[in-house]
Structure formats: structure tokens, C-alpha cells
Design a protein around this nucleic acid. Structure first.
Lengths: 305, 305
DNA sequence: TCCTAGCCCTAGGAATCCCCTATCAATGTG
DNA sequence: CACATTGATAGGGGATTCCTAGGGCTAGGA
């Protein structure tokens, strides 16, 4: 069986034209190098050196083998270097889970932060939705993530809340923005809600549903759309109202629905953002970095907890 | 310490996303692969897989490591392939020792023979003179050679005579070619002799000197030149006579000294060509091939045994 | 909610490998 | 011809590698 160690010994012996000096060079005893060379010759089926009185002389087989051996060792060296550099975040890929609208909370800025500190890395922000991310976490495809945690099954997971995002009522009708929206009004409103794919497990919807239930109402949604942007645009057209995270409202209303505004709910309702990873896992430096930066970003935009 | 075996296990585990299946694939028990991966992770200082319930999931470190690992394995494979191909003479260098004037005995044809049968190989015919070659043999830089063996110290060497080349007298004077040349005439002749650098150890000169000594004469050489060609040209000019191998005479006289001819000596004197290599050495396929082909060539031109 | 199957880990023992020291044989040198 | 140098060999200690057996955890289904 070919081994890197044999190649190292071979190269040293080839260069020194002496097993004794090769052994000195490598810090071994001479018989050890001798044995490695012998094993190498056996595994290749070709003699590599002619043992000749004083020293050894490479055969033509050794001549042709040498550049290949050096290439193998160089590649091995490079492989190690590549990995140890990833350890210090000089290169490699940082993969971090985030819910979909996190981009509105500075996802791009987060990537910029990472690239500023570690220009060599690749960054992947994974996940279209918190549920999506949660699934990836559970399967181990993601090491850590920042997601909205309402409705999240916490078993086996370490959940660290870092911020809370208030849910607010969006409308293009100034009349409906004069006072906080009660459950009664909410239940009667024509609403557009985003994240239609995840309607049952969407974190914002869960807390909203909970709030309505406590007041004795059932949520009724007129329109389901996939994108928050689409929902906000619809609000801007005055066709429907919506409920969404305050952070989202602040970001999108001016751009997509200039005439519309928002008002709190009564009682106020909050969605919780948290750092989540498998319980008991030791986090990689990359994950720790992302957690730190994402936390900073989020807490700068929405209300810390 | 990094090892190829670890890399093999890593690649299998990475591809199967399972240590168990990797082990099956490689024909090992699962704990063995597990251990290899663990050692690899330890030696790299980075976890490569997250052990997650069902199966394993590569970390980003593993993602970056994988292409490098594959490169190392590919290079190792290529190295082995290169050597096994030289074993079967598909490639590599064949180095063979020959005395200088062997080119007149079909050195070029010999190379052509080799290339015809093994188009991929490099061929080196080494040696300006038999003594030169003998030295290279002794130092182990040559594995085998075909040389003229008079004066060759045989200790530690295996010598297999394959042909004998008669020494003949060369002259441009027809008078001197009428009868075989006796030692007396030889001692009185004005002679040009080639191989001036090796004058003491040249095989032809040694047998000639021996023959003269037995008849009670001492050899006297008027002119020393390096090349046989030069010597023959001088003969062609009628300035001096010479003694050389019959094979050489047959080759060169028509071309370089059209008016000159040759005549045997009396008694006849022979130089011996032999295959020489270190005693007890096992010859490589390349060396065996060269011995076979060179023997055929020589025996087709000069007298076998 | 519990059970089962799948998968990885640990434990412990046998075989092998690796490296050492000590010594021998061969070779080149003064 | 004695001496020094070099590679090969022998033998032993320690590490590595492989195996089997068994335990724990997870995923998925009854």
C-alpha cells in the first residue's frame, strides 16, 4: 500500500543519494528509511535504487517516479494548508441559516461585515423561511441559524432569543390607522398574508393566531401571497390590509406602499428572533462569527431582548 | 500524520454521507472507517463531519478539503500508474552503456529497434569509451552495458562475451596490404592510433600490446588522435597506417579513405565485446531488452561468440 | 407514545506497522 | 591492509489498524 510517508522517505533518499543522510534529514534512524524504501519498492513492484557500495543510485524508474511523488506530496501539503486556513476563516464557506425576510433586516450588510473581516471566505445565507431553516438544522445540514421561533419545536435545540419584532397592522386607509387594532377589528378586516407555503407554521401567523384565539376570534385571510413585498404592494393599492413585522413594515412601506401606514395591535404582539442550533453542539468559529454579527445587525434594527 | 488511507476513507464517507456505507464500499468494518476519519480530523484540527442521527453531514471544512483530497489521491494514482507503465516499458528512460565506436556497429539502428517496439520510451546510450562505461557501471550509474572487455577488471562484474572483433591493419599503400602484418612489421610501422585519452586502457591497444610483447617488440605510436574517423582519414592520406577493429574498418574505409585497404594481422588478434553488469544484480526489463537487441545488432555485423 | 431499524460510538483484543538499537556485510579510502 | 562509511538484518517496544461485540441516539412508523 502506497503511503505519503514512503514518498517522503523516497524523495529524501533520492535527493541525498544516501539512505543514511536521508534518515538524518528526516530525523529517523537509517534502518527505518531503508524499510520505507523497501516497502515502497515492493508496493510499486520496481526497484528504485541500486545499492552500490557507497550510497544508493536511483534507477530510471526512480527518475520517472520522483516528479510524481513530489506532486503527491505537494498536493497533500496544499490540502492541509487549505483546511488549516479555513480554521482561521481565511477561506472556505460559512453557511448560516436565516429566515426569508431577514434580508430586509440587513442580510446584505451582514454578508458585507463578514467579507470585510475575512475577504477570502464564501458566505451562504440559507433558507427561504424559518421552517425551512429549522428543517435544515434538524437534519444537520446547517450548524446554526437565526430564525423566528414561534412554533418551533425546541427539543434537541438550543434557542437563544436575541430580539423581538412587533407585529403591526398595515393599511392604506388612514381611518384604520388612527388607533391600535383590536382582535375584533382584525378578525373583520380583509387581510393579505404572505408566506402562503408556510401558512400553517409561519411564526408571525402563529403568534397572531394565538392572540386572536385568546380574544375568541378565528383568523380569516382573504388573500395569500408568497412574498412580503407583494403583500405590501397590495396594501399600498388599498385593496386589502395586512399584518407583518414592524421591521418589515418600516423597510417596505415607504418603498412599495407610499400612501400606506401602520399601527400597533392591541394588545401588542411580538415575534421572537433567536439563534438556534443543535443542543450540545460545539460551534465552529465560522458559526460563532455569524451568530455574533447577525445578532449585532438584528439588534441594531429591531428591539433587543 | 496525514495518510492516503485517511483520504480514501474521507472521500468514501463524503460521497456516501455515511460511515457505514463507506466502510461497506471500502470493504472494512464501520468502526475502522470511523477511526480513520477521527484521526484525520485530529490531524487536521478541524471536524469534517457532523454526526447527526442518521448518517453524517460534511462540514464546510470537509467541502473545501474534498477537492484537495481527491487531487492527492489522483496524483498518487498517477504516480503508481507511471511506474507500472515503465515496468512494462511503455514509458520511462532506458539507459544503456556502450563503447564509443558502437555507433558504427548500428547504434542508431539499435535505438530505432527500441523505439519501434516501445514508442513511449526515452533511450540513452551512455559512454564515450569502454573505460568510461566501465566506471559508470562500477559506480552503479549504469545497470548494464556492452563494451570491449580487454583490460577490464572483472571483479564484481558479470561479463558475457557476445562477439569478437578482429583487429586489422589499415594502409593506403597496396604494398603493405599484400600479406598479413607480422609483429615485426607492426613494430616498425608508422602508426596513428585513436582514443588518445584512454591510450593506456583502450581495449584494442591492450590486445595489440600483448601480441607485440609476446613477439618481443614494443609498440610505438607516432600519432595519437581522439576519433577513429580522424585516424582513418589520416590513413587515407597515406601519411600513416593504423590498426583498428575490422568492423570499424569496414564501415569507415570506403567513406573516409577510399584508396586505403586493410589486411589481417599474423597471428590474428581479436578484441572481445561483452555484455557487462554488476554481478548478482537482477536486471530490469529495460536492461534485458537492450541486451537482447544490442546483441542481435552486434552479432549481425561482427563475428559472434 | 412507544418500538424498531439504522447508524455511529466505545471497548478490548489480535495483527500489523513503525521505529528504535545493535550488529553484520560490503565497499571505498588512506 | 586497517579503517570508516553505508546499507541490510535481527529483535523488541510501542503505536496503529483492524476486527467483533455491544451501547446510545435518532428517525420513522405502528
Amino acid at each position: 500500500m502506497l503511503s505519503l510517508h514512503q514518498l517522503t522517505c523516497f524523495i529524501a533518499a533520492y535527493e541525498h543519494r544516501s539512505l543514511t543522510r536521508a534518515a538524518e534529514d528526516l530525523g529517523y534512524a537509517q534502518p527505518s528509511v531503508s524499510e520505507q524504501i523497501r516497502n515502497l519498492e515492493k508496493s510499486l513492484g520496481v526497484p528504485l535504487f541500486r545499492r552500490v557500495g557507497r550510497g544508493v543510485v536511483p534507477t530510471t524508474a526512480a527518475d520517472t517516479f520522483r516528479p510524481h511523488a513530489e506532486k503527491v506530496l505537494a498536493a497533500a501539503d496544499e490540502a492541509q494548508r487549505a483546511v488549516t486556513s479555513i480554521k482561521s476563516l481565511e477561506t472556505g464557506t460559512i453557511r448560516f441559516g436565516m429566515f426569508g425576510v431577514a434580508r430586509l433586516y440587513g442580510g446584505a450588510g451582514l454578508v458585507a461585515d463578514v467579507l470585510e473581516r475575512y475577504p477570502g471566505v464564501r458566505v451562504e445565507l440559507v433558507g427561504r423561511h424559518s421552517m425551512d431553516v429549522q428543517e435544515n438544522l434538524r437534519r444537520g445540514r446547517l450548524e446554526a441559524a437565526m430564525i423566528a421561533v414561534a412554533g418551533l419545536s425546541s427539543e434537541g435545540m438550543s434557542i437563544t432569543p436575541i430580539a423581538r419584532d412587533e407585529l403591526v397592522y398595515l393599511s392604506a386607509d388612514p381611518e384604520r390607522l388612527k388607533s391600535p387594532v383590536t382582535p375584533k377589528r382584525l378578525a373583520e378586516a380583509k387581510l393579505v398574508m404572505p408566506e402562503s407555503t408556510y401558512r400553517e407554521s409561519d411564526s408571525a401567523r402563529i403568534v397572531l393566531r394565538r392572540m386572536l384565539h385568546e380574544a375568541g376570534y378565528n383568523p380569516v385571510t382573504r388573500i395569500e401571497v408568497e412574498d412580503v413585498e407583494t403583500a405590501v404592494e397590495l396594501v399600498g393599492m388599498g385593496l386589502v390590509d395586512s399584518v407583518t413585522n414592524k421591521g418589515v413594515a418600516l423597510q417596505l412601506l415607504p418603498r412599495l406602499a407610499p400612501g400606506a401606514g401602520w399601527v400597533p395591535l392591541r394588545p401588542r404582539v411580538y415575534d421572537t428572533m433567536a439563534i438556534v442550533h443543535r443542543a450540545g453542539a460545539t460551534l465552529s468559529p465560522a458559526a460563532k462569527l455569524m451568530i455574533e454579527l447577525a445578532t449585532q445587525r438584528i439588534q441594531a434594527i429591531i428591539e433587543p431582548v
